[in-house]
Simulated scan of single mutants.
Amino acid sequence: MNDFVSVAPISAHAAHDPNPPRVEPILKGDGWYPDIDLRDVRVVLRLDGTVTDARLFDAVVEGIAHAADVLHAWRVKCEASGAADLAATHPRQVAGESVQVRRYRRAVYGWAHALVLERYRGYDTSQSGTRRVDAVALSPDEARRDAYWALGDIVGRRRLTVEAI
């Protein structure tokens, strides 16, 4: 049995808005987690203009939500112990900033990067283009691994890598 679904065509005007809504570059944290600057995300992840601000915003929002979900139980314990914010959960600083804040950003950036990579694998689908992308680009799985390692580092969970033989 075959199913067929038909949808109304999208007009050219609706498909491409020449003046997309402006996306604020700073995503405000909730006071416990730090703010995320989309300009910094773009630089760190080396994203060019093919990833629109709106799509980057969406991926980073999901990264923030996912990190918060994974850290929820740990955060509740930390707040019960008197931690006013993420930075207060660990005394160490690197380059004048809490390592926990840096790890949180790495987790958010990693998750957002995985989402972006899945959508923008590359426009050159020729064999040479695929080899070039594979040689240079981080895979979505590697970006997710980096994000989960960062979240594990925040809560103090040791890393373990196992390979099946």
Rank of each mutant, 00 (worst) to 15 (best):
M1Y: 07
D3F: 03
V5F: 01
S6Q: 12
S6G: 08
A8H: 01
A8M: 06
A14N: 10
A14D: 14
H16W: 11
D17P: 14
P18C: 04
P20M: 05
P21D: 01
R22G: 04
V23F: 00
P25A: 01
P25G: 01
I26W: 01
L27Q: 09
L27W: 09
G29K: 03
D30L: 05
G31T: 06
Y33M: 02
I36V: 08
I36C: 00
L38D: 03
R39Q: 12
V41M: 07
R42P: 08
V43Y: 00
V44N: 03
R46T: 04
L47M: 09
V51N: 07
T52D: 02
L56Y: 07
L56F: 08
F57S: 09
D58H: 08
V61G: 04
G63Y: 06
I64M: 10
A65S: 13
H66D: 15
A73I: 13
A73T: 15
K77Q: 15
K77A: 11
G82A: 05
G82L: 03
D85E: 04
L86E: 11
H90L: 08
V94L: 05
S98E: 07
S98L: 07
V99I: 15
V101F: 05
Y104N: 02
R105M: 02
R106Q: 07
R106C: 02
R106N: 03
W111A: 05
A112K: 04
H113N: 08
L115E: 13
L117F: 12
E118T: 08
G122R: 09
G122P: 11
Y123P: 03
S128R: 14
G129Q: 10
D134H: 13
S139E: 13
A143F: 13
D146Q: 13
A150G: 13
L151I: 06
L151S: 12
L151M: 14
G152T: 07
I154H: 03
I154V: 11
I154P: 11
V155T: 11
V155Y: 00
G156P: 07
R159H: 15
